[in-house]
Design a protein around this nucleic acid. Sequence first.
DNA 1: CGAGTACTTGAACCCATTCAACTTAGGTGG
DNA 2: CCACCTAAGTTGAATGGGTTCAAGTACTCG
Lengths: 229, 229
Amino acid sequence: MTGESDCLLCPMRQLSIFAGLTIEDLSPLGMVVEDIHLPAGATLYRQGENARYAFTLRSGAMKLSVHRRHQDENRIVRLLRYGDLLGFEGLNQARLHYQHTATALDASDLCLLDLTALNRLSEDRPKVRQALIGRWQSALEEAEFQLVEIGAGKAEACVAAFLCHWCRVFPDGAWVPFPIERKELADYLGFSAAHVSRVMADFKRNGYVKESGKRINIQYIPLRRIAGA
Amino acid sequence: MTGESDCLLCPMRQLSIFAGLTIEDLSPLGMVVEDIHLPAGATLYRQGENARYAFTLRSGAMKLSVHRRHQDENRIVRLLRYGDLLGFEGLNQARLHYQHTATALDASDLCLLDLTALNRLSEDRPKVRQALIGRWQSALEEAEFQLVEIGAGKAEACVAAFLCHWCRVFPDGAWVPFPIERKELADYLGFSAAHVSRVMADFKRNGYVKESGKRINIQYIPLRRIAGA
DNA sequence: CGAGTACTTGAACCCATTCAACTTAGGTGG
DNA sequence: CCACCTAAGTTGAATGGGTTCAAGTACTCG
């Protein structure tokens, strides 16, 4: 399930917070980095638990969700993929607990980073510091994407915007991994599972997208028409 | 309209990113800080403009909004008050432009901070760095509050959650400045102005809240009942 | 191949939108 | 200081989109 690994050999390093660091930067740091493998559905950490580690997602997909106070449903606040960093709220010394529950949507590989070591590293290395600031910024932008593009408007437009956003890093027309159930998509978008299902079914009937197994393929989504209606 | 000021004498310093710094820390930095005063409705900066300065809000209230691509309406992504920092997206070197449009909801005083100087300062002073990380964290938490408590559910519950959140830093039962129009509240919550007005009017009729001029007074909001319904 | 889970679909209901009319509040000039 | 004027807030009625709940269908995994 877990084991040690060498960051210097990591094929993902260019995308990670250690990108741009040389061997001289990294090797003497003595940062122990562990590999973690999670099966689909497994929980990595829970909201409120002591935050001692951050994680880098190397493959698979995860969701961050929060328990709503007066409601039984869970709201999904972020979806993560290849290269994303999670659990770093503990870097802010005032936040000693995880703010979300992290669950694997699909079988996932992560590496574990000790937060105190990471903190020390960011003190010493401006590049790491910049990289971390960048992660904070993207987390914020992702949240604002959700607010702006998804938080209001008709369901069709929200689903369409999300699908385009989800597939944005892949070439047009590619078959993109899509390990997200209707219920989860609904929790993320703020609609009922039934209605999300309706919209997705319509999109498929209209030939906007295709689905096969846990992959999706965007053919052509008439964003203009959907938003304008 | 503008003038220089001395951070060391600022009555807000304990709340600001310079909190915890001594005179020795601050005085030799040569950071020029300017005072800015804005009348209600004035725009401080616009989405897409070159980001050279961050700002600290010393009094009044502001909103950050984004223009929606396929929509004419603007979505409000954050509301700011006393002590809040805005415009710091430029600290991330990859973001040279403001991500939002900043507009004064009320007559407001701010101080202007040069971003490059602020960057230098955060390199040298761990306390400033920590304070900035804290600001990033609160921006993120604020966005997630909006997602979780306000982005889904019945309008009554959203309005109630927002009002409690807005008044949280004041003592219970206090008259709290509330320079937010129905239309703006609607843009923030993602409802129509008409419906927000209806809900607010109901709340007032039921004695949950009182309004007078640009101030509000929460008497008692039965959150449990509203959310449970 | 069977069982359980996810997905789809229908119908009734409910909440929010829309648009328009009306009321209130705040500000300006006489 | 009052009368007017404008912008903001309130309210009603009709419409429409989304939820809910339940039934039926299609996967997927063992």
